[in-house]
């Protein structure tokens, strides 16, 4: 039997952290792209598009992320197209992230005072000009702190990919635990590594929030 020293454990966990980071990046970039699309669908004047988007957001916010993962992973297999844990996790986390970002961004766009739309219209700007020159620049400033804050939820969400067998930080922890029987050390280290990834982002989000508040925008 191979003996694991503390450094072996730490090294293996650090190596697995790479996949947590990669998966988080995929989910965040994918989620932001889909989320942006959804935000504009939600703001369109088409009733059906609005309803469809709210339904999408409600569905993803009202069900466990674990079930979303399972449905995509097992659903693809049931349809006769089995997909890897990698792909299933990427898709599920992208959709999950997009729903939450859509909700956050819609809130930011709506937070810009309604009167500004009317004022821009009176000045002769059309929808896109108003959006581009008046609403978006303000909404963007408002949206950055909660978006950074949500990235922490995305990183933590990737831990669930371990359940469908994707080897990231949490899965590496359980595997190492099975090999070494040192659960206390291992899960403390796993928690510490997540903390090291998430805490700086949390602090940054709080800092940005405070800056907005001090600027009198909130």
């Amino acid at each position: 039997m191979i003996e694991f020293t503390f450094w072996d454990i730490l090294r293996n966990l650090l190596l697995a952290t790479r996949w947590t980071i990669v998966l988080s990046l995929i989910a965040f970039v994918g989620g932001a792209t889909v989320g942006l699309l959804l935000t504009f669908m939600r703001l369109s004047s088409n009733r059906w598009l609005q309803r469809l988007t709210s339904l999408y957001v409600d569905l993803f916010q009202g069900t466990p992320l674990l079930m979303q993962l399972f449905l995509i992973f097992f659903g693809a297999a049931a349809m006769g197209h089995p997909i890897s844990a990698w792909l299933a996790a990427s898709i599920a986390l992208t959709l999950f992230t997009s729903a939450f970002l859509c909700d956050i961004w819609r809130g930011c766009l709506e937070a810009v005072a309604k009167g500004q739309w009317h004022a821009s219209r009176v000045l002769g700007m059309n929808y896109f000009q108003t959006m581009r020159h008046v609403i978006l620049p303000q909404a963007l400033r408002l949206s950055i702190p909660p978006t950074v804050g949500f990235s922490v939820q995305v990183i933590k969400g990737t831990a669930l990919a371990s359940i469908i067998g994707f080897v990231e930080l949490t899965k590496a922890g359980t595997m190492l635990n099975n090999a070494t029987f040192e659960p206390f050390t291992i899960f403390a280290l796993v928690a510490l590594l997540y903390f090291a990834l998430c805490y700086p982002l949390s602090c940054y989000a709080r800092y940005l929030e405070k800056k907005l508040y001090d600027a009198g925008l909130r």
Binding site: V152, K156, G157, A159, L160, S162, I163, T170, G173, T174, N177, E182, P183, F184, T185, I186, F187, A188, V190, A191, Y194, F195, C198, Y199, S202
Partner: peptide
């Protein structure tokens, strides 16, 4: 509060269920 908010729930659960018996 900070540790709980910045680590995944599943890891907290594993730490309590698998980790604490180690102590």
């Amino acid at each position: 509060v900070e540790v709980t908010r910045n680590t995944p729930f599943i890891v907290q659960l594993f730490f309590i269920f698998f980790g604490l018996p180690g102590l």
